[in-house]
Design a protein around this nucleic acid. Structure first.
Length: 269
DNA sequence: ATAATAACCTGAGGGC
DNA sequence: TGCCCTCAGGTTATTA
C-alpha cells in the first residue's frame, strides 16, 4: 500500500512518540514477514531509539546501538497506542516504550519487513543501490533523461524502478504521468528532454502535495494516529473508471508490469 | 545490463 | 449464505 508519502507520513507521525524513548519490551507475535524477523530484534529491550529517518520506502530507526530497518510492504501500517491497548489482527510487532506508548506494526499480507543492522543501514544490501530521493537535488532532468535514454521499457515501469528513483509506486506513477501529459506506456527513450523535465516537476509536486495531505488512503492505510490520508480526493486518474476530469474523455485502463495503470488518451501522449 | 515473469500473503468485493 | 474468482498502495529472485 504505502508509497513515499505514506511512509513519510508514518515517519512524521511516530517520530515525536518514539524519539529518545527506551524500548521496554519487544513483542513479536508473528516473525514471518518478507524475511523472518531475526532473533536480535527480540533482544532489543533496553535500547534507546535516537532518530527516525526514511530512505525511499524504508523507515530507519537509529538506536543507541544498531539500527532497525522497516518496510511497510503492500499492506503495512504503524500506530502509536497506549501500552495495554488490545492487539488488532495482524499486529505482528509491538515496541513498548518507556513513555507508556507502544509502536504497533500491522501488516495483513506480510510483505513488509523488519531487519536489524548493526552497521550503517544505508549500506545494507537492500538500500545501498537505491536511486536518488525524488524530493532531493539529485533527482533532476539531467539525471532522469540519462537513465531513460537507452531504455525501451514503458516510462511508468521506469518511474517505479527503485534503482532509478525511490518512492514512486503505482498510484503516484500514474498521477505524475497524467500531470506531465505522458502516456504510461510510452517507451522511456522516446520522451524528449523537455517532457522529462516536466515529468521531474510533476513527480516532485505530486509527492510533496501528497505528503502535505497525509498520503492516500484507499483501503487500510492510516496515519500513526489512526486518521486516513486525504490525497485520495486529489487523484485524477488512478482508479478512475469514468471520465477525465480535464477533458471528459473516457479514462483508459491497461496493465503494465503486472500493475493497473490509468491514463487519459486525450491529455497524455 | 535490461526486460519480462513468477513468487511471496491475506482480505475485500463481485458474480452466481 | 457460501463458493470461486479477481484484484490490491511492493519488491526480490529467476529467467530469457
Amino acid at each position: 500500500m504505502p508509497e513515499l508519502p505514506e511512509v513519510e507520513t508514518t515517519r512524521r507521525g511516530i517520530e515525536p512518540h518514539v524519539c529518545g524513548q527506551r524500548i521496554d519490551a519487544v513483542i513479536l507475535r508473528d516473525t514471518r514477514l518478507r524475511w523472518p524477523i531475526s532473533a536480535e530484534v527480540a533482544g532489543l529491550a533496553g535500547r534507546q531509539i535516537e532518530a527516525v529517518s526514511r530512505r525511499g520506502k524504508y523507515l530507519l530507526m537509529r538506536l543507541d546501538r544498531g539500527n532497525l530497518i522497516w518496510h511497510l510492504g503492500m499492506s503495512g501500517s504503524m500506530r502509536i497506542l497506549p501500552v495495554g491497548a488490545a492487539a488488532q489482527s495482524h499486529e505482528h510487532v509491538e515496541l513498548q516504550l518507556a513513555n507508556g506508548q507502544a509502536l504497533k506494526f500491522r501488516d495483513p499480507r506480510r510483505f513488509g519487513a523488519l531487519l536489524y543492522s548493526e552497521p550503517d543501514p544505508l549500506q545494507h544490501r537492500l538500500l545501498n543501490r537505491l536511486g536518488p530521493e525524488p524530493l532531493g537535488e539529485d533527482f533532476d532532468t539531467e539525471y532522469l533523461h540519462r537513465r531513460c535514454r537507452q531504455r525501451s521499457a514503458a516510462i511508468k515501469n521506469v518511474l517505479m524502478n527503485s534503482h532509478i528513483v525511490v518512492g514512486v509506486g503505482n498510484i503516484y506513477a500514474s498521477e505524475a504521468l497524467f500531470r506531465a501529459g505522458i502516456r504510461p506506456t510510452r517507451a522511456a527513450r522516446r520522451i524528449s528532454r523537455a517532457r522529462i523535465a516536466g515529468l521531474v516537476d510533476a513527480v516532485r509536486e505530486i509527492l510533496a502535495t501528497a505528503i502535505e495531505l497525509g498520503g492516500t488512503t484507499l483501503r487500510d492505510f492510516t496515519q500513526a494516529d489512526g486518521n486516513p490520508g486525504y490525497f485520495r480526493h486529489e487523484l485524477q486518474v488512478y482508479g478512475n473508471t469514468g471520465e477525465c476530469r480535464i477533458c471528459g474523455a473516457p479514462i483508459k485502463h491497461v496493465v503494465l508490469g503486472q500493475r493497473s495503470s490509468y491514463y487519459c488518451p486525450e491529455c497524455q501522449s
